[in-house]
Nucleic acid binder design. Structure first.
Lengths: 220, 220
DNA sequence: GCTTAACCGGAGGGGTGCCTCAGTTTATTC
DNA sequence: GAATAAACTGAGGCACCCCTCCGGTTAAGC
């Protein structure tokens, strides 16, 4: 149940409040998309033509605003993910899942950051990450069971790829906006069962993975 | 010719100045290694037990201090790179070059950041990057001509890998400090010539690559 | 139109960081 | 041991950013 649902149950917002809220979300979408999840909240308020106090009235924490701002991106991702997972061919499903994920990631720095980080206090975002993790597990296992993906990789390797992709997007989004796709397809060659060579390093455990994502979300 | 050479030609530093300089470099090494090239200069001065004005007296710009701080890391890298490039087997040389580079990268966040960024104003760092770029070109071409590395990859792809690796290191250095090696070996599987699949995206041009590295060095 | 709860604005306190400069201290030289 | 250039200090100006609080404003319901 999202925050807006809760609010609607309480009482409809006053007209000016509704407008402020909408303007804030619009400004936040633009700002997070351009500058990532650490974008300045004061700048977002300015962009919305609203005072900083109003921003905090509507969104007491950065995460509240971020979740509202990322909603369409999440929607977009979920649709593409569902389509991919319904594909008959396991390898095609695996490829389509990643391509969809990365395409959304490439279009929004906020979403890009969001993918690499976990916010332990926040049940809503934790749930999103858990679901994604499970989907990756499913789509990967299916490709492995069909003999298409090498059996020695785990979801931790896919998360590595998500991090990698995020960094490439950060670097290239302005000057070579589709460059990430090249790296993805190179990596797909690495994932193929028929080309596999032994890897001299075990995959990360789930705990290491989780800690790493929390680590990325900490202020440096 | 490095800055310290220039200074030695002018006149020996006063004893207290020499000490301040040494303490600053030591503190900078620790701080850059832990927090990357954007570490706080005031914190470095505090760590050195010296006033902020003294820091600026010795190192007028952040880059001056960074270069002094990274010197041992560069040394370390150069030695490993030379060893790798002298190997007889072209594929082994390619692998050894990357493994050395990434191992150094994994040990120092400052060096890690430094690798991904270019600073157009600074002749010294530009030169380092140019040399590295040429080495990558050499070692890759040699592996390709020996038929070991697929012919359709370029140095831009290796730079992508450096960025990727950097991000993985950022995420994992505290909890899974050798995790990066797994991703490297997966990627090596992707680079192998045998049974390579076509990549539906051209490599970045040199200009795109350069711009991307400058972009990463800009304040977000 | 009056009331009032809801809403808004924005000053202000607290924090961090960059960088400068005037006043003080100190190593060195004679 | 005095003279002096070199070096050091740290307060202070500037620019951000986060978040709170309270006086003023306004939409909505009667």
């Amino acid at each position: 149940m999202s925050q807006s649902d809760v609010e609607q149950m309480k009482r409809p917002l006053r007209r000016d409040a509704r407008e402020s809220r909408d303007k804030l979300i619009a400004a936040a979408r633009a700002e997070f998309a351009d500058h990532g999840v650490d974008a300045s909240l004061e700048k977002i308020a300015r962009g919305a033509g609203v005072a900083i106090g109003t921003l905090y009235r509507h969104f007491p924490t950065r995460m509240d605003l971020l979740i509202a701002a990322l909603e369409p991106r999440l929607q977009e991702f979920v649709e593409g993910a569902d389509t991919a997972m319904q594909m008959d061919d396991p390898w095609a499903a695996f490829v389509a899942y990643l391509d969809n994920l990365f395409a959304v990631q490439a279009g929004d720095r906020g979403f890009n950051d969001f993918l690499s980080r976990r916010f332990p206090g926040n049940a809503e975002t934790e749930h999103i990450h858990d679901v994604m993790c499970q989907q990756i597990e499913d789509v990967l296992t299916r490709a492995q069971e069909a003999g298409k993906a090498r059996p020695d990789i785990t979801r931790a390797d896919i998360v590595n790829l998500i991090w990698s992709n995020g960094r490439i997007i950060d670097a290239t989004s302005t000057k070579a906006p589709t460059a990430w796709r090249r790296q993805l397809h190179l990596m797909l060659d690495a994932y193929r069962a028929e080309r596999a060579h032994a890897i001299p390093e075990p995959p990360m455990t789930d705990e290491q993975l989780y800690d790493a994502m929390v680590h990325l979300s900490k202020a440096k």
